[in-house]
Amino acid sequence: MDTLAMTVPTVENGAAAWRIARDSGVLDVNSSYSYLLWFKEFARTSAVALRSGGAPVGFVTGFHRPEQPDALAVWQIAVDREQRGHGIASAMLDHLTARLAAAGALRYLETTVSPDNAASDRLFRSFAKRHAAPLERDMLFPAELFPDAHEAEFLYRIGPLR
Rank of each mutant, 00 (worst) to 15 (best):
L96W: 10
P66W: 11
L96K: 10
P115L: 11
G62Y: 01
A47T: 11
H86K: 15
A89C: 06
V57P: 02
T97F: 06
R107N: 08
S90M: 14
H64M: 05
S32R: 15
Q76E: 00
A105N: 05
V57R: 01
E67Q: 13
I77L: 00
W38Q: 08
D70G: 03
A101Q: 12
A71F: 00
A55T: 15
A89W: 04
A103V: 00
D23W: 02
A73H: 11
H86T: 13
Q83F: 14
L93W: 04
V74K: 03
S34Q: 11
A103L: 12
V79W: 08
A78S: 07
R99K: 14
G25I: 00
L36W: 13
R81F: 08
Y33W: 12
G87K: 11
T45S: 10
T112E: 02
L50N: 08
D80V: 10
A21N: 04
V29H: 07
V60F: 03
K40N: 13
I77N: 04
Y33G: 13
H86N: 15
L72F: 01
A43E: 03
S34W: 09
A103R: 07
R65I: 05
S114D: 10
V26I: 07
T111W: 00
T97L: 08
Y108I: 03
S46P: 05
D80N: 12
T111K: 05
W75A: 05
S32Y: 07
Y108S: 03
L27M: 07
G58L: 09
T111A: 02
R44L: 04
H64D: 01
Y33E: 14
R84N: 12
A91G: 15
F39N: 09
L93T: 03
R99S: 14
L50P: 09
W75L: 01
F42T: 06
R44S: 04
G58N: 10
S31G: 14
S90P: 07
L100A: 02
A73Y: 11
S31Q: 12
S24T: 00
R44T: 07
D80E: 15
V74R: 02
G62M: 05
G25T: 00
F39M: 04
H64F: 01
E82H: 14
F42V: 02
L72I: 06
V60N: 01
M92A: 04
P115M: 11
L106P: 01
D70A: 00
E41L: 13
S32D: 13
A55Q: 15
V57N: 04
G58V: 08
S52G: 11
R107Y: 02
A103D: 09
A73L: 12
G85A: 08
H64E: 04
R65F: 02
V48M: 09
V29M: 03
G53R: 15
S46N: 01
L100P: 01
I77K: 06
I88D: 01
R22K: 14
P66Y: 12
V60P: 03
L109W: 07
G87Q: 11
A47G: 13
Y108K: 06
A101F: 06
W38G: 10
I77T: 03
I88C: 07
D94V: 13
A89Y: 02
H95N: 10
A91F: 07
R44G: 04
S114N: 13
Q68K: 13
Y35K: 05
D28T: 12
N30Q: 13
L72H: 02
S46M: 02
A71H: 00
M92G: 02
R51Q: 15
L93I: 04
